[in-house]
Design a protein around this nucleic acid. Structure first.
Lengths: 341, 341
DNA sequence: TTGAAAGCGTTACCAC
DNA sequence: GTGGTAACGCTTTCAA
């Protein structure tokens, strides 16, 4: 492996000059630059990111802290991150988080500039203490799908999303609506479900109703199926179910099929996210720009990295639009008498 | 940020000793070790991976080179990689490859131990020259879903897979079978499609038939839809279509729906991969263990990393089993007269 | 068992 | 413009 010394020797210059060429400093004469470049090409020299990082006191990789495999949506966001990072010269390092301990471990280790130049935290709300630590460590952070004090974030308005979904149901004539989501109290501090439920309640309240049932369960299709099974067998079966994620909505579909209930004939189902399967399964849902959230998050981080000063504007929170996507799982309620609006 | 010197000072020992404690060398007295550990805890000290790597001449991250976003299956493999890497202490660095130039660039840059301790190359066949370079650079490589001279690889038998799919069709009574896949000549050197086609031809030949058509197109649903549209409108319409990937199979489904053809009534469709959407879309397919391929690949790499000697056994190629998954897109041909077996 | 010191490959500062 | 050289934070000899 050729080092910078080899290049310097071959080009007949000092290592300082080679370094300048490498970092294209303007203070190198054209002739010298050429000679150095030739030597580099000849030796097939590539600088060591490790040494460079150590010397500069900062790493050249960006950490993505992700609850990677529990949410299909995270992958989509990651795709956006990769796209947003483009060829900015940063490596993307993945940190999978499966538990709060995991999260603390990663965040703790990453709170130093020589570990990661910047951090993208997806769908996780880091405890304030860790945010402080990150800030002290000089590691810029951008939150995607989460909010935190004074930290740039890319979010959607989940309350509005909850409203959007419920309005669709109410507009169709549903009054008996059940809600399925993730537990509002959870170790990661996810708040999306709680906020969607809020929006749901608001809209229902406006027509003098409230959810016939609110069930919390894991973000898992099979678990949601089990929960939905009970819901659909209860004596006051809802005419519509609002699932806080498409994964859960697909579980509801499974349960309905299992019980011989037709969707949307016997029960309407609406999800949230619009992940890939939703199109195939024909699930009516609220689409959130997953890919775009990752792309924008990466872009914001890149900006912070380029211009650390840009940290205290007030447009810290970037809100992305939500959109109703009507497919084949929602329709007006039939059979039983509608409740009064 | 506390450094090793701070710890040494606080513990009243030399940095060498701290380093020994860090790398739990046995040559440290219990008492000393305790004092050092206390100092570490007190200072919340974490060693710099950069400095450690530079000093040891090797990085502590594993590179995953992936055609990340063109194939949904790659994500599934990556999930397996993350699982397989577990908490072995390596960072997972993602390298997205969108073009051969991309691939060469990444592989070139990664051919040094201080860049990546090891490499996982997914669904890409690196040119022999690059493999040599990697070997020279002392970077162990494991190929996932690809083969290469003398390099450990996790693969499936695509010819057998092609047979499996076609046998299913033939068993159902189909003789007029068309094949859709990716171009056999492609810049990345993918060979999966060609091998599946081979298996398909073998089985067809055994019943005295051959594909009614063989079409090549991108690994993209919409493109496959267009191709399938023509196929389904041709005068000698096949009774079944074998698509070399589920993504393409879903495109075929789109085309059929568009033309008012029923599946499997008017035409049977079988795919390959068994990605998540396939279950939702009810696509009959050949399942390949995507997650497992990633997990095993990571495990193999970890073994190489731990024991570099383990490089010349003859069980270099690990073959994973393929499995027919019958769902709702295949049935016996109807309407027209069957060709003779 | 421990301390001191020499690298590891860069960058950045300071002279020239 | 350019060359020399001290960091950067760790691991790993080599002595003691």
């Amino acid at each position: 492996m050729a080092t910078i010394d080899d290049v310097a020797a071959k080009a007949g210059v000092g290592v300082g000059t080679v370094s300048r060429v490498l970092n294209n400093s303007p203070k190198v004469s054209a002739g010298t630059r050429r000679r150095v470049e030739d030597a580099i090409a000849l030796l097939d020299y590539r600088p060591s990111p490790l040494a460079r990082g150590l010397s500069q006191g900062r790493s050249h990789s960006i950490g993505a802290v992700v609850p990677f495999f529990t949410h299909a949506s995270a992958v989509e966001r990651l795709r956006g991150v990769v796209a947003g990072l483009g060829s900015a010269g940063y490596d993307l390092v993945l940190f999978d988080v499966e538990s709060p301990a995991h999260r603390a471990e990663h965040l703790g280790a990453l709170a130093r500039r020589d570990r990661a130049a910047g951090l993208l935290v997806i769908s996780l709300r880091p405890p304030p203490a860790e945010l402080v630590r990150l800030a002290e460590g000089g590691v810029p952070v951008v939150l995607i799908d989460a909010m935190g004090d004074g930290v740039p974030a890319v979010v959607t308005d989940d309350v509005a999303g909850g409203r959007l979904a419920t309005e669709h149901l109410v507009d169709l004539g549903h009054r008996r609506v059940a809600f399925i989501g993730e537990p509002p109290e959870n170790p990661f501090g996810f708040t999306a479900t709680a906020r969607r439920e809020l929006g749901c309640r608001e809209v229902l309240a406006a027509v003098g109703a409230e959810p016939t049932a609110v069930e919390y369960c894991e973000h898992d299709r099979l678990v949601a199926q089990r929960v939905a099974r009970d819901l659909l067998q209860s004596r006051d079966r809802p005419t519509a179910i609002f699932a806080s994620s498409d994964v859960q909505a697909s579980g509801v579909l499974l349960a309905a099929a299992e019980l011989g209930l037709r969707v949307p004939g016997d029960v309407s189902v609406i999800g949230f996210d619009d992940i890939e399967i939703s199109m195939y399964a024909g699930i009516t849902t609220i689409r959130q720009p997953l890919f775009e959230s990752g792309r924008l998050g990466a872009q914001l981080l890149l900006e912070r990295l380029a211009e650390p000063s840009a940290g205290t504007e007030d447009d810290l929170v970037h809100e992305l639009p939500l959109e109703l996507v009507v497919r084949r799982t929602t329709a007006p309620p039939t059979g039983r008498r509608r409740a009064r609006g």
